[in-house]
Design a protein around this nucleic acid. Structure first.
Lengths: 337, 337
DNA sequence: CTGAAAGCGCTAACAC
DNA sequence: GTGTTAGCGCTTTCAG
């Protein structure tokens, strides 16, 4: 029924080993026999069975990727980086949407390990001890992309979120603002919820601006949350004049919430986002934002993983990529008015 | 080093076969022995090797998914539907980004087949004879999601794009418009480029509205293309009063292009999009659009695939899901002014 | 209800 | 250069 390496061998009048050699590009084959084998392969329509190969060689050229939400523009962009590099190195990807649920994540990791992936790229928001426990049962390398884990045991690639939050706030301060609000992620999220927020605090502190608890809203970084936050801030007695939202989607929600209340951005209130997803250029005013090199984070993470899988030396298992601020129309920082 | 089924068998004092049975949930095992085996598994930290299982059983519980661009909101949403149903049926997904390139697609299909996936869900824009050739070498079922192939041999799930294009245009006509332009996809794309466009033509024709060649622009359905199209249409002597864009992103580009030229939407010009991606609610005015049940298309496609993989009967291999029009703020169809 | 044994299709020494 | 021969770790008859 299905044609195997053995059929090819017989057809070509050689041994399985020889067929295996030509299939795998082993140079130790006389050109004439190679030709014969190739002809037999063509004739029979032979397709190597990667599962059998995987069992025999103990390598599957497949890596597992855990993603919290494939329809999130941010993670999808990371995934693109991962996929590009993976395919460059001839790896395939088993993509698993974890829905950010711990139980599912743990189960997925186990499944991936059973499937004998050669390595795993993990994306998530928070890493608990339960995560670490499963990670530790892994016999293959794992690298975190856009995700952090406090002990810094696991290799990871990120930007400096603290610094990024600081930078964003500084720009607002330099724009002359004193009443600066923030919509930050859930506090369980060490990056979007904590570090960016800590950067914000530090910036205020350094500039002797009082920190006001009612200027901070911690929520899931959705569009709706942004709209709600805008309403909430605008109901304060002393309303903020600038808002730092820890994600672009949220920032856009903030802007629309503001606009719906008749406020103009940036004339009345300035808004800055985070990530630089494509959406940020597809709204009016275009969103000023902290740009995170999403594609690169994914790409570098995957590249790092290939090094581990090939037992190459890696000089630094924690890589921090640069970020920058892209000023568009939702802030007026560059205008001198 | 790694613990195998054999180790568990010895530890539990039973045969491999018995261990296999408990691992696979075979009921023909005495509770006591099951308990013993489970204990041994726990003790040894045994993790079944899915590759070996796949080789022996000829099933990998893995399906391949080809996606043109993982960072496209439309396809990502389909992928979510696919993934959800796949995980519901205990399948894992090998996700391959084809970048819409024929050569890569063909190569990816082959790789997936080598990896012994149990089935394939294919998403793409166009299906050529080269595609069909590879598809035909497959010994596992393939279903198309959001993609069509003229011969209708392959199972697929879609909406009726012709009807959808027709409906969108009719709404514009009913809104009182006579000068209706369209930004359609590339003509190689049978759905976004051809069918939607044909629907548009038919609607005009039925209402005795002259078809004008300079009211149609066929381009990649990007945001930029939308902006460019808006400029182009507005440079015409007789400018359109309504524009149907064959994707939401393009529609938003059109709107912004219009706004940048000082036009108001919908007061001066009405715009309707296609797909109903999340973006359509995250812009102002909110975009009226033809809603395509993206998640469902993916989900149904995957469900269909499971049927084929289990040799279940399927009554109809071509499934057409319903679409509808969601009126938001970029059209005034419902207003009576 | 349980065990023995024959593969699944391929790779990887090891000979020649 | 090429062939032989063990496995890789598991499922699956087939007995009993």
């Amino acid at each position: 029924m299905t044609v195997t390496i053995y059929d090819v061998a017989r057809e070509a009048g050689v041994s399985m080993a020889t067929v295996s050699r030509v299939v795998n590009g082993n140079p130790n084959v006389k050109p004439t026999t190679r030709k014969k084998v190739l002809a037999a392969i063509e004739l029979l329509g032979y397709r190597p069975n990667a599962v059998a190969r995987g069992l025999a060689s103990k390598r599957t050229t497949t890596v597992g990727v855990i993603i919290p939400d494939i329809s999130s523009a941010f993670f999808a962009e990371l995934a693109r980086g991962i996929d590009d590099i993976a395919s460059m190195y001839k790896y395939n990807i088993i993509l698993c949407d974890s829905d950010s649920r711990l139980d599912k994540e743990v189960q997925l990791i186990n499944t991936l390990l059973e499937k004998q992936v050669d390595g795993i790229v993990y994306m998530g928001r928070e890493i608990t001890e339960d995560h670490m426990r499963v990670f530790n049962t892994s016999n293959v390398p794992i690298v975190l992309a856009g995700t952090k884990e406090k002990s810094s045991e696991l290799p990871s690639v990120n930007i400096d979120h603290f610094q990024a939050g600081y930078d964003a706030t500084i720009r607002l301060i330099e724009g002359g603002h004193k009443r600066i609000a923030i919509v930050t992620g859930p506090f369980q999220d060490p990056l979007a919820g904590v570090e960016r927020f800590e950067g914000y605090r530090k910036a205020l502190e350094e500039h002797n601006i009082d920190f006001r608890q009612n200027y901070v809203i911690s929520d899931k970084l959705t569009y709706r949350a942004g709209m709600a936050a805008a309403k909430s801030f605008m109901s304060l007695e002393e309303t903020p004049t600038a808002i730092f939202a820890a994600s672009d989607e949220t920032a856009v929600g903030v802007i629309h919430g503001l606009q719906d209340m008749g406020k103009r951005v940036p004339q009345d209130i300035e808004v800055i986002g985070f990530d630089n997803i494509r959406l940020s250029e597809m709204v009016r005013p275009k969103l000023s934002t902290v740009v995170q090199p999403m594609y690169d984070i994914g790409a570098v993470a995957m590249r790092l993983l290939t090094k581990y899988m090939n037992n190459e030396d890696v000089d630094d298992h924690i890589v921090v990529l640069p970020h920058r601020i892209e000023e568009r129309q939702s802030t007026t920082l560059l205008r001198d008015e």
